[in-house]
Design a protein around this nucleic acid. Sequence first.
DNA 1: TACAAAATGTGTCAAACTGACACAATTTTA
DNA 2: TAAAATTGTGTCAGTTTGACACATTTTGTA
Lengths: 234, 234
Amino acid sequence: MKRYPHTSRILVALDCIVFGFDGSQLKVLLIKRNFAPEKGKWSLLGGFLDHDEDMNDAGNRILYELTGLKNIYFEELKTFSGVNRDKVERTISVCHFALINIHAHNPDAVKSKNAYWYTLQSLPDLIFDHREMVDLALQKLRYKAALHPIGFELLPPQFTLPQLQKLYEAIYNEKLDRRNFSRKIISTHLLIDTGQKNEGGQTKKAILYALDKHKYQKQFNAFHYFISGFGTSA
Amino acid sequence: MKRYPHTSRILVALDCIVFGFDGSQLKVLLIKRNFAPEKGKWSLLGGFLDHDEDMNDAGNRILYELTGLKNIYFEELKTFSGVNRDKVERTISVCHFALINIHAHNPDAVKSKNAYWYTLQSLPDLIFDHREMVDLALQKLRYKAALHPIGFELLPPQFTLPQLQKLYEAIYNEKLDRRNFSRKIISTHLLIDTGQKNEGGQTKKAILYALDKHKYQKQFNAFHYFISGFGTSA
DNA sequence: TACAAAATGTGTCAAACTGACACAATTTTA
DNA sequence: TAAAATTGTGTCAGTTTGACACATTTTGTA
């Protein structure tokens, strides 16, 4: 047999919400689409699944082309499969989201592809169902970061507790109690005190921590409840 | 423009792990594949995405054809996209899992399609990557049922606390403390005491509860921590 | 008919955790 | 040199958790 009978073949795309954190705000990487239709409009990072690659290959390829980064944290979110979501031809899109250290990506690659970082509050109009994808990705990020140490993927290798707290406050758009947050993070034993303090700081210098990668991987699926009150019935 | 240039179109399938609970064991619905290749071998419930339906339509169609049930709980798990996972032609499969009340499905429809319920301990060999899908689905069910009131989908409309506990014990394959489990479930306020007791029981008759559907939907995304110790670093 | 056996419903208690809040130490700046 | 901003750590009452005991109900059987 060469093909299955009575079936229809369609295009499979991969779109990805790339999150970054600049120290005070959560940002999303958007790209100016350079082919028709909707050429020149804002879109998520994406591409078509090639005949000789699986989804993981495609994700790595697409993320590498734009950011110059390998081994990026990304995970699958949902398949968007509306019949008319692309007017040219039937295309389903497997939506992913990625978390990167915003200071580590290659700004030249980003610029040359006409990509820019947008805050969630100032997103431009997006093509197709990409806005829906962003909303879902934020929802998933909030869910997952409340339970698992996923937030560290958005920070540089060394960071302070106040920086980590600012990240969580940006993700949930709410203030957290400094003392309780600190207690929670320290009690995970996921952080290693580097013995150093952050330079260029203001007022009191904070301790620089690094992630204990071994414990991080081992405990990744453990529940941590980083955010109190998140997920309650309210 | 009629089509995107330099792209490859592929088949999109939907496969679904259908879970059921017979009162003591967690079971999976498997089907004898009735077309080549691998005809006659065991497979998950599945089908191809048609040109005029989205993934949700396809899932409902496929589940209805086999079980005779509508409004089944099902959710997307992951897209399996290995290049050679189907030898006939490139096919990606969007894997889902479904939870049904095992006593509500249409046994004639199931029988006529050559489908049977298997326990997780006695699964036959499955085609393609379907075994991997089952393992992932069980993992996801365990994860989700520990946090959200998803387990009720596997029970009849009225059930007792001991029945609910047996379900959780089957899902996690471990014994739970009856008193602490009861306290946890009652404290969610998701159950309504029907005032009735279960008939045909043994020894003491237990209270029959029904799910408070309104609260269930409202609190579905809340965290409940049904299973203590699940997701800890151990 | 009464009693053992099995299963169900509810209660107790110490340990751990949570949320709210106070105080001391460090660094910059006026 | 002192005020202001920021960071690190501690306290304490209220809540939740895990381990465990006891009383009640129903069946079956001596």
